[in-house]
């Protein structure tokens, strides 16, 4: 059980803001932390790790990590931290990277074999691909059997295929070790797949908090499905208008009438939904 109550003044994207977070996290749960950039997610994670100062109170399994301004140094917290840029020790082999945290060869070998890295154990980090590096980083974070695993956008630098594979690995590690985990993420599918709870921050405050489905699902009322996107263009064709909307990595066309078109401007955030039809789901490619 982790109780978090922190306050800190931050210089965000829109000038000064206050990070003010009150959160209780159950042991062994997997929490995703989401929100726009500059909302304070990474800072919150770093405060939990003890890498940044803050005022407040953090109690993890009856151990006080922060009380007022008095903070337990990161070395004494027993955490695992996975950085976005891997942060492997370049002068050491993969195995030594793990053993640096704790001299426990059996655990290191177990972790490496779980992530199919055992054959690379004696290579230097520079010779590894991004996905492999992040797996090593994850294994290293698990080496001191952390009470709390913190991950700062661990998969955002990887391609979608690698991301999928690593999500599976994170999930199986979480199942095996049952480590309470907090992960900063932007990717809804990632959050849905991995986390049991999603917390959304905005301007340093919690604006949404709930299970992955209720926070991430964007349909309202009787809508069958709906997507958020950005309006790229509105083209007039005879008497109708066609809106070009970017949704994720795809672009779609939607027919508008004149009154709707008048109200829309290029660059607007829009919501595309439908009510009348049952969407058809077809398999496109087998996993």
């Amino acid at each position: 059980m982790i109780e978090i109550e922190v306050k800190k003044e931050l210089l965000g994207s829109l000038g000064k803001m206050d990070l003010d977070v009150n959160l209780t996290i159950e042991a062994q749960s997997f929490v995703a932390l989401s929100g726009q950039s500059g909302s304070g997610k990474t800072t919150l994670l770093r405060i939990l790790a003890g890498l940044e100062e803050a005022k407040g109170r953090i109690v993890v399994d009856n151990e006080v990590w922060l009380d007022g301004f008095k903070a337990l140094p990161p070395q004494k917290r027993g955490i695992g931290f996975v950085f976005q840029d891997y942060a492997l020790f370049p002068n050491m082999s993969i195995l030594d990277n793990l053993l640096f945290v704790r001299q426990d060869k059996a655990l290191a070998k177990e972790l490496l074999s779980m992530s199919e890295l055992l054959e690379l154990a004696h290579r230097k980090p520079a010779t590894l691909s991004g996905g492999q590096k992040q797996r090593v980083s994850l294994c290293r974070a698990m080496m001191n059997r952390p009470k709390l695993l913190l991950m700062d956008e661990p998969l955002s630098a990887l391609d979608p295929f690698m991301r999928n594979k690593l999500q599976q690995e994170i999930l199986s590690l979480h199942k095996t070790f049952g480590t309470t985990t907090i992960m900063v993420s932007h990717d809804p599918s990632e959050m849905y797949r991995l986390s049991s709870r999603v917390v959304v921050l905005s301007q340093g405050k919690i604006v949404q908090d709930g299970d992955a489905k209720s926070v991430l699902l964007r349909t309202q009322g009787s809508q069958k499905f709906s997507f958020e996107g950005e309006l790229l263009d509105v083209i007039k064709v005879d008497v109708i208008y066609i809106a070009i909307v970017a949704i994720g990595q795809q672009i779609v066309e939607v027919v508008l009438d004149a009154s709707e078109a008048l109200d829309l401007h290029v660059g607007d955030r829009v919501n595309i939904g439908t009510k009348a039809f049952a969407p058809i789901l077809q398999k496109w490619e087998k996993k």
């Binding site: 003890g50 990161p74 070395q75 840029d85 942060a87 492997l88 020790f89 002068n91 704790r102 290293r140």
Partner: peptide, 26 residues
Amino acid sequence: PKSIKEASYTGGKSRFYTFVFIILPC
């Protein structure tokens, strides 16, 4: 790189230990 130092701190190693075994060899 700050993150490499911090990775060592979160792994339980002191600033001096990190300097001798990570930064100096690098």
